[in-house]
Design a protein around this nucleic acid. Structure first.
Lengths: 354, 354
DNA sequence: CTGAAAGCGCTTACAG
DNA sequence: CTGAAAGCGCTTACAG
């Protein structure tokens, strides 16, 4: 529902009254006729400015309806994107903003003609652009910024550069929390199944994990750190490699829920019980974590809120406001469920003591 | 003799004269008011068509940018909606159509002011409206059709009435295929865990299941048919009730993948092995079916294609074309994976024979 | 140059 | 339901 301001929308007659001329004269100034005295023209123009007058045509062109923003998701087909989208759409509805959604692969995004794209958005009166887990070049960004179209990236692949507005999660702190939870349970042989090396969020998770090991005096073992994709397939493959080691890990920190799903499947296939024989922590905290057996201990990202925050930032920028910071990270939270426990050796020792 | 130049841009009064009504009446038709007799409306619309009249608003909306349609999803947060959305967005991209997505609960949808909503869409030059798993009243529908905004419903909750264009799947055939697969494996005690009674698709699945039983001379047992929701929670609850029966079923046909997920969890909790002790067939065929252990045998709906077909229909209608049929059902397909097997008794007998 | 008056195209309020 | 009448916001034609 759109609220009508009590302040009456300025009409040609209003402007005329303020400028002390007749309506036809204002009409002439607006339409660029030359039969108006310079002084009169100046007075009328001042009045137009002051009242923020817009002709019906201008008003219409300026998108008569609710504000609209574009949202581009790379690979809609995962739980992660879905939750970001839901948060964003819910907030959009409450703000009376409409969202044009596109599902675009990174390759297509990269090869797109950004000038044309930005011009089309400007013509359509779009207020801003939100990208999810994509990267954007400085050159492409300038196509939009030159047209006053703000761009916000959710969970950017690149490290946050100044000039690119982005919303992320505290990936480093999340990685640290995951590893510390496992260390706290008594684990020392903790593996990391990461995503793409190029993804900044993945690198941050890795370094959080390394920081936790280091601060507890645990040496990191290169064989325990595998980089791949945020996918179940990589979880399966990585687990196979880890369990084939002479000294396999007692715990795995998977850098995404999807990866953890793969770990769970491969462990089951090999008769390795989770959490009895192997502890497992995921990352993302999507609805998937509740659907596995055992339910998955995971670092939850505030995906819903990230969608919300990104839209809020775009609307603020479109409104000419200044943001507190270009890059914002929302807090992750470790949610302990059923896939983590003390390592076997510990429990065996505890039983022996009894 | 009065010679009118044909090049003259048609104006409201021109249309009125041709239709033999007054200008205000034409104005009402254009703006979708409901206080115009059907016959009068038809005459006016014919005149509008013949003269190619366009209001200033329409003229502006039309000349600018790619076509846009609105998509309203009820409860985005499930795999089903996600796959429909993906199919629809991919086709939209290839057709250079933009999609405005909203996530609206059924309650909100019901209480919405459809007149205002339809008028906003008309003002914004939207080509059509697509609803996913929602119901729409005849009254609401008329708000849109009066403004020449076609509406297509994907997987409608109500039985397809004439006048409502919808895209669904062959739910009855799918239900029959699921039950026949189980019967073919030797099962006779087959339960059905359904969705809401109000959902037409669910009723069709149930009757497909019943038809299969009947055609094989298997009596249907009331205790084996439970109606609830398309959710994992109901899968858990239903399984609990079924396994507590004096003579529990040897197979369960779950009317959604989510329900099947719940069945799987509860079976595991009770130490009932799938498919050894219990066979399970799901319905939807979302990506979930590949992620479970065992992987889920399921009736797959062509969700991707349903999204695609719905958009295609809306664009055709917007283009003034006539559809072959108001309601279309795309074929479901049984995909056999690892959650179904011959019932125990059968296998025991087979072993005894060896 | 300027603006009263007429006009344009559309919408609104309301009597019948 | 319908349309005469009034109104709205803007533009045009033209007298001064």
């Amino acid at each position: 529902m759109r609220e009508k301001k009590p302040a009456a929308k300025p009409v040609l007659a209003t402007v005329a009254a303020l400028a002390g001329v007749s309506a036809p004269t204002v009409s002439k100034v607006i339409n660029g006729r030359d039969d108006v005295a310079a002084g009169t023209r100046a007075r009328v123009q001042a009045a137009l400015e002051e009242l923020g007058y817009e002709s019906p045509v201008q008003r219409r062109a300026k998108s008569h309806g609710p504000a609209m923003v574009d949202l581009v998701i790379d690979g809609l087909n995962n739980q992660y994107a879905l939750e970001v989208l839901t948060g964003l759409l819910d907030f959009a509805a409450s703000e009376d903003v409409e969202v044009v959604v596109s599902n675009v692969t990174p390759a297509k995004l990269h090869s797109a003609n950004h000038e044309e794209w930005a011009q089309r958005m400007a013509d359509a009166g779009r207020k801003g652009l939100i990208l999810v887990t994509s990267e954007i070049t400085a050159k492409a960004l300038s196509s939009f910024s030159r047209r006053n179209i703000p761009v916000v990236v959710i969970d950017p692949l690149n490290p946050p550069r100044s000039g690119i507005v982005s919303v992320g999660a505290t990936n480093w702190a999340g990685g640290k929390a995951a590893a510390e939870h496992l260390i706290g349970l008594g684990h020392r042989r903790i593996a990391f199944l990461g995503g793409p090396n190029a993804a900044e969020c993945n690198v941050a998770r890795l370094h959080g994990y390394l920081a936790a090991l280091m601060s507890h005096g645990i040496e990191s073992i290169p064989d325990y750190v595998l980089m791949g994709q945020f996918s179940a397939g990589f979880g399966v493959e990585g687990t196979r490699r880890l369990l084939a080691l002479d000294e396999p890990p007692t715990a795995i920190f998977a850098a995404s829920d999807a990866t953890a799903l793969g770990v769970l499947d491969e462990a089951r296939r090999q008769g390795v019980r989770v959490p009895d024989d192997l502890s497992l922590v995921g990352f993302d905290g999507t609805a998937l974590t509740e659907q596995t057996l055992p339910r998955l201990t995971a670092v939850a990202q505030p995906l819903f809120e990230m969608g919300r925050a990104a839209l809020r930032s775009v609307l603020r920028l479109a409104n000419g406001e200044v943001l507190d910071a270009d890059h914002v990270e929302l807090a992750t939270e470790l949610v302990v469920r059923d896939s983590t426990a003390a390592p076997r050796i510990h429990r065996a020792a505890a039983v022996a003591r009894d």
